[in-house]
Amino acid sequence: MTQFQSDYQYSRTYQGPVQAVIFDWAGTLVDFGSFAPTQVLIDAFAGFGVEVSLAEARVPMGLAKWDHIQALGRQSGVAQRWQAKYGRPMSDADVDALYAAFLPLQIERVAHYSAVIPGALEVLSQLAGQGIRIGSCSGYPRVVMDRLLAHAASQGLTVEHAVATDDLKAGGRPGPWMALANVIELGVTEVCACVKVDDTAPGIEEGLAAGMWTVGLALSGNEAGLTLAELEQLSPAQRAQRRALASRKLVQSGAHYIIDTIADLPAVIEAIAARIANGERP
């Protein structure tokens, strides 16, 4: 067999505009503090006689809900309480049962928690006015996502595309598939011209795995874990402490930028656009 090696190296630099922003939902566009997923999980575990704290429920946030329940059951404190209650570790069959109890509660209550986060409508309008496509994805399954989309639309918030965690055979976060499904649907030609915006580590990792710029949200999402009213009651020093703790987690996950809420996004999109114009890639 004849073998040969070429010295040719293909090089191509994209220097065009930001083409798309892919948003998470809870804690990003709606549900300040990301309470809909966490509180319902707490209630589902309570139905099985096992106490779970809000802090514990937040640890695996961003994963698909079945995976979230499984990860929660493996945390030392929850695992010990489950063992004490049932005399054995949590099994996949137990996760199935918990998920079956969780899902109708989530469908019923998602709208209750999902008020639009201040600034979201204005930012989405501004992005659209710049010709930037708007996609989204979530750890919610499709039946919950459909309920959430309808509720968001009733408040004036719509996106061009939304991917639920069970829409794809490949799975959910922290893999790149939901983010990339948006790329395909929106007709994006350069993944490096996309920005993923999320409030959780798995969501940031999702964007990085897809080859996108990533923006973490420090104060509106899961890491700070406060309602807007609770956040506004903090002193400047307390708010700075919350911001620092949340930012540390998101930076460790690889976020390129950290902002407080979606209201701060336009300046970051402008900064990313300048870096792309200089030939930089995520």
Rank of each mutant, 00 (worst) to 15 (best):
193 A>V: 13
104 P>E: 05
78 V>M: 12
58 R>V: 11
76 S>H: 13
189 T>Y: 00
96 D>E: 13
7 D>G: 07
70 Q>E: 10
131 G>V: 05
218 A>N: 08
73 G>Q: 10
56 E>K: 09
110 V>Y: 01
48 F>W: 10
93 A>L: 10
198 D>W: 02
47 G>R: 12
167 D>C: 15
123 V>W: 01
71 A>M: 10
141 P>E: 14
106 Q>S: 15
146 D>Y: 03
81 R>S: 08
101 A>Q: 13
55 A>W: 09
17 P>K: 15
108 E>R: 15
213 W>V: 04
191 V>G: 00
176 P>V: 09
138 S>L: 03
202 P>N: 02
144 V>F: 06
272 I>H: 01
256 H>E: 08
216 G>P: 06
11 S>M: 11
49 G>F: 11
44 A>I: 10
31 D>C: 01
114 S>R: 08
9 Q>F: 00
38 T>Y: 00
203 G>Q: 05
59 V>Q: 15
94 D>R: 07
92 D>P: 00
93 A>M: 03
52 V>F: 04
132 I>L: 11
80 Q>N: 14
241 Q>H: 14
206 E>W: 03
122 E>T: 03
6 S>Y: 09
191 V>E: 07
206 E>A: 03
45 F>K: 12
105 L>H: 11
206 E>H: 02
150 A>C: 12
117 I>P: 01
48 F>I: 00
188 V>S: 04
254 G>D: 08
265 L>P: 00
143 V>P: 05
185 E>G: 01
212 M>N: 05
125 S>Y: 06
196 K>A: 07
261 T>P: 03
61 M>I: 02
215 V>E: 03
253 S>M: 02
25 W>Y: 12
218 A>V: 10
73 G>L: 07
58 R>I: 08
14 Y>N: 13
198 D>E: 14
18 V>S: 13
171 G>F: 07
70 Q>D: 11
263 A>D: 05
5 Q>G: 12
63 L>D: 01
32 F>A: 02
105 L>E: 12
197 V>M: 06
82 W>T: 02
142 R>C: 09
103 L>P: 02
224 A>P: 01
152 A>L: 09
127 L>M: 15
137 C>F: 14
20 A>D: 04
34 S>K: 12
50 V>W: 05
256 H>W: 04
245 L>R: 11
169 K>A: 15
243 R>H: 15
236 P>S: 13
209 A>S: 14
38 T>R: 11
140 Y>I: 15
